[in-house]
Design a protein around this nucleic acid. Sequence first.
DNA 1: CAATAAATTGGAACCATTATAAAAAAATAT
DNA 2: ATATTTTTTTATAATGGTTCCAATTTATTG
Lengths: 138, 138
Amino acid sequence: MKKDRPFTHAIDRLGSVGLRPTRQRLALVRLLFENGDRHVTAEQLHREVTEIGVKVSLATIYNSLNQFTAVGLLREVAVETGRSYFDTNTAAHHHFFNDDTGELQDIPGDSVVLSTLPIAPDDTVVESVDVIVRVRNK
Amino acid sequence: MKKDRPFTHAIDRLGSVGLRPTRQRLALVRLLFENGDRHVTAEQLHREVTEIGVKVSLATIYNSLNQFTAVGLLREVAVETGRSYFDTNTAAHHHFFNDDTGELQDIPGDSVVLSTLPIAPDDTVVESVDVIVRVRNK
DNA sequence: CAATAAATTGGAACCATTATAAAAAAATAT
DNA sequence: ATATTTTTTTATAATGGTTCCAATTTATTG
Ligand SMILES: [Mn+2]
Ligand SMILES: [Mn+2]
Ligand SMILES: [Zn+2]
Ligand SMILES: [Zn+2]
């Protein structure tokens, strides 16, 4: 029996955004999307893909993360200067960031809501609103 | 007649946090705190201090910004990977970030309020909540 | 003023990321 | 299938913001 969830298969997900299903991109797509929502850095993903025995250069990791972001498969989250996080959940949502562990995690559902959104400065339009709740280990 | 606002003078502000009033630090404190709230990067501040004719190395700019942050005179705001912004307003408040110009600016008063704050993950405590409203030029 | 401690400095090192250009792989045409 | 063309991957170099370092200068203390 066949799942009807869209893009169950890595190859279809790549096809849907017009990227060729290469060995490297397939491995990355599987790691990223076949285990629920994820938040990864380039180095993390490189370590993971290497661990499962697939050889992918770090340059390709960066290329792929940027391409996936450009086509809307991923979004980038800025939590600390120095390194980028990529998020497989592209819907509007907010984050907890653990300063001790560097772990980024979604804030569930609507458990944080802005009561008022402020008026954007003159001649500007609001693009997005990012809420980051910074936490520390107790 | 004497102002009664605390730390009107750069030298007092440095004294109050136990930092020696060197020529370099005095110039930086004046630029940072004598013209209302500011949001600057290291490079920006270096350009400014150079423009007023004070010679300060970039290393000292970084040292000073980090020291000022450590003693609570400044706070660091993470808006984009790659470079740090330092904020002279250390009270809890939120920001507009203009992606086109790189300008960071305070969201006035309580024009943005979180209706609910989410429960922090197990064994963690909330440290701070940062709201960044990203805008673009119209 | 002498001695000591702290701060500043130029330049090297660092680290995440991006650029480059050659080799490899994939798609297309024959 | 083979040849041709296009895209992708890769190793490596370059980049840019930041930090480190050891030598020099400045400030404080005795
Ligand atoms: Mn990017
Ligand atoms: Mn810092
Ligand atoms: Zn997320
Ligand atoms: Zn601010």
